[in-house]
Write a protein that binds this DNA or RNA. Structure first.
Lengths: 131, 131
DNA sequence: CAGTATCCCAACGGATACTG
DNA sequence: CAGTATCCGTTGGGATACTG
């Protein structure tokens, strides 16, 4: 008795619930709701990028955090890492189909922040000056 | 010379860029890409909730983190806090229009995690067992 | 260039105890 | 019930130095 991919995802939605403390999705949610992960996925949405290109694109990210974030995303099957033997060595990162599936979701947060920053500033000003 | 709300958001998209280290959206992105923030917004998407209801719904959240998350969301104009004088006191939290605007974005992450947990597990198994 | 390994400080976040 | 305050261990994350 086989199920379609869609049926399996529907089943998963019933089985998994990130509101539950012990649910593995709680930990996956932690990985996805990560500033650097969001920026990396957004940066890779346009196509493969070298390590150095990502470092340049995502201003201010330390080498350590970039590598660490990429490793986690690679382990979770969202990104592939391709090493080209050369001197110096060349490493390209690319989104997997699973990772590309996540692009709209992750870029939506970044876009939302950029689009609504002004309203958040106004709200903060109101909050900070209430009597 | 006035602009429509949409025009202002379009303008903001050009002015703000979370890829830049000094951009205020980088910090807003940090707030939004927060495990507890995502769960709180998802929990409030169905309507107003009391502090204790949220604590119960979001299993495992400490009282400290719940209050802290709610304060940040309130300050950023995403949530309202309503105190009803009584003994004991009653406090209700509710999404603002700005907060409701964010619901689809935030619930999408949670839903994605729940729907694709199995594929992430498979990817991890592959990653962890490669020679 | 890409990555690993330390060192180290600051922030996160849980546990507990105490107020209105 | 809702919230604050304190303590304290854990993690996040930058800086630096060193390899293939």
């Amino acid at each position: 008795m086989t199920m379609t991919a869609q049926q399996r995802r529907d089943q998963a939605k019933r089985d998994y619930d990130a509101f539950l403390a012990g649910c593995p999705t709680r930990e996956l949610l932690s990985t996805l709701t990560d500033k650097w992960a969001a920026l990396v996925i957004a940066a890779l949405s346009g196509g493969p990028q070298r390590h150095s290109e990502l470092a340049h694109r995502i201003a201010g990210v330390s080498q350590k955090m970039l590598t660490q974030t990429l490793r986690t995303l690679e382990r979770d099957g969202l990104v592939t890492r391709t090493v080209t033997a050369a001197v110096p060595v060349r490493v390209d990162y690319e989104l997997t189909p699973l990772g590309r599936d996540l692009v709209p979701v992750m870029t939506a947060i970044k876009t939302w922040a950029e689009a609504h920053m002004d309203r958040v500033f106004e709200a903060r000003a109101r909050f900070d000056t209430r009597d």
